[in-house]
Design a protein around this nucleic acid. Structure first.
Length: 224
DNA sequence: GCCAACGTTGGC
DNA sequence: GCCAACGTTGGC
């Protein structure tokens, strides 16, 4: 069961929702050396020592790419085109990314990031509309992200439902975010520890409120 | 298409 | 539980 690609959201909107959160055997959810400023869990229901995150970034590929004969393309326009502009973020096959999805709460916001494409960057914002539940595609032999090691009585992978909120006022390219990241490394600005750069391969990542707000503020600025 | 970074697997 | 080999991610 090789780890698979990034998420692809399928056209299911409101499948029968079993609020079935599997226990968190994070077999591989090992050491993640808190790169991001870790907000101390003040009052949350998180176990001691883990941070509470409220903002997210989720990657998906907006350009066609075929994997086992199946196109994994899913950009923000594809989400927008779904009924109710809502889809499930299935196909995540990485423990850390999965665990972050399991921390997501209804109503929280996530950036929709376009990866593996001509112009990588942040395309828009979506809202978490359903908290983590079993990702049914792990059992589906026809699915790109089928995981033969998973059985319905012992699922491994979760997904959340997301709803399109809006596109960014202007697309925020990775190249620009990186310039700020580098600049902030020198001057201590808000993007100095951004997971997009410190944990490049993570497809679902947390942002601090400071990071999120700073990125939002870029919409009204000239491109760097 | 290349390839560096890094997560996962499996032997020991 | 270590760690080398392997496979994937994703920018360039």
């Amino acid at each position: 069961m090789p780890p698979k690609k990034k998420a692809r959201v399928s056209k299911t909107s409101a499948k029968s929702g079993k609020i079935n959160d599997i226990e968190g055997t994070s077999a591989a959810g090992r050491k993640w050396k808190a790169a991001a400023p870790v907000k101390k869990t003040g009052e949350g229901s998180q176990s001691a020592g883990s941070a509470i995150f409220t903002c997210w970034l989720m990657k998906s590929e907006p350009e066609s790419r075929f994997e086992n004969g199946i196109d994994v393309k899913f950009g923000i326009e594809d989400l927008k085109a779904l009924p109710d502009q809502t889809g499930c973020w299935d196909g995540v096959r990485n423990y850390q990314a999965r665990n972050f999805m399991r921390q997501m709460k209804e109503g929280q916001q996530a950036f929709f990031y376009h990866s593996n494409c001509k112009e990588p960057g942040i395309a828009g914002i979506m809202t978490i509309v359903k908290e983590a539940y079993v990702d049914h595609t792990q059992f589906d032999k026809k699915d790109v992200h089928y995981d033969a090691s998973c059985k319905p009585d012992n699922p491994k992978w979760s997904m959340v439902d997301v709803q399109f909120q809006r596109t960014m006022k202007r697309f925020l390219p990775l190249s620009e975010l990186k310039k700020y990241h580098l600049q902030h490394g020198a001057n201590g600005g808000p993007l100095k520890d951004m997971a997009l750069f410190t944990r490049a391969r993570l497809s679902v990542q947390p942002l601090t409120a400071e990071e999120f707000d700073f990125i939002l503020s870029l919409e009204d600025k000239e491109p760097l």
